[in-house]
């Protein structure tokens, strides 16, 4: 049997801010080719993990491998990353944002970006400053999906976004996923309407992965993700 190397592998990975552990000796191995939901309450270490994967922050201890290599700007050419609470340059139009992508992101397909834009109702000539947060989120998602990369990381892509944009983004993602061999990590604390997309789940709490595995297995054992949240994070819910 061919052994496919994990897309992300953490061994005893730690990152401290002051005395607080954002990642606390995290052991995690995420298989390639999955749509992975990285779930957990705010402050559980999701964003810190993603920032370590994209080389934004340097971990204090432990080992981290992304696509089989230590993370850094060199590996970022294979990653489409939507940062947490990211915005876009307000004076750009959507088209200028895509041209930025075509200039700086290796393998960026400008035509694909325009097709996504049409599919997701993004006006190419509109300036970002004039867009709603939801429209801006669509532009940014396209910036992550238009390059041909093996790994896409979306940090809270649905936070603070109106219903219609959310629908447009989910449709865009499903449309994108067909016929593509890509791994996607999506962090969210809001699972409604997206839980059907995940085929692998990582549950995080206090800088650790408390459960990870196939989502069908999780459903079989614990029920819907909503029930899972209640089972695993009882502490948080009862607070």
């Amino acid at each position: 049997m061919m052994v496919i190397q994990p897309i992300v592998q953490c061994v005893q990975l730690s990152k401290r801010y002051g005395k607080k552990y954002a990642l606390n000796h995290l052991d995690l191995s995420i298989p390639a080719g999955k749509i992975v939901g990285v779930l957990g309450p705010n402050g559980c270490g999701k964003s810190t993990l993603f920032r370590a994967i994209t080389g934004l922050i340097a971990p204090d201890e432990g080992e981290l491998r992304v696509l089989g290599q230590p993370p850094g700007w060199q590996t970022n050419r294979h990653i489409g990353y939507l940062p947490d609470r990211a915005r876009w340059y307000p004076r750009h139009t959507a088209l200028q944002a895509f041209e930025w992508g075509a200039s700086f992101l290796p393998g960026f397909d400008l035509e694909a970006a325009k097709t996504f834009a049409a599919y997701m109702d993004v006006d190419l000539e509109m300036s970002l400053a004039g867009m709603s947060k939801g429209q801006e989120a669509r532009v940014m998602l396209i910036l992550c999906m238009a390059p041909e990369v093996p790994l896409i990381i979306l940090d809270e892509p649905f936070a603070g976004i109106d219903f219609i944009s959310r629908e447009a983004i989910i449709s865009g993602m499903i449309d994108y996923l067909e016929d593509r061999e890509v791994s996607i990590l999506i962090s969210t604390h809001d699972i409604q309407e997206v839980e059907g997309l995940f085929d692998y789940i990582v549950l995080m709490d206090q800088g650790k992965a408390i459960w990870s595995g196939e989502s069908e297995e999780l459903r079989g054992q614990y029920g819907s993700l909503h029930d899972v949240f209640r089972t695993f994070y009882k502490r948080e819910w009862s607070r």
């Binding site: 994209t54 700007w73 060199q74 940062p83 915005r87 700086f104 992101l105």
Partner: peptide, 15 residues
């Protein structure tokens, strides 16, 4: 100020 530092710093080029 623009909230774009994440995009800027994860560009696949050396700092």
């Amino acid at each position: 100020e623009n909230g774009t530092f994440g995009w800027w710093l994860t560009l696949p080029y050396s700092r």
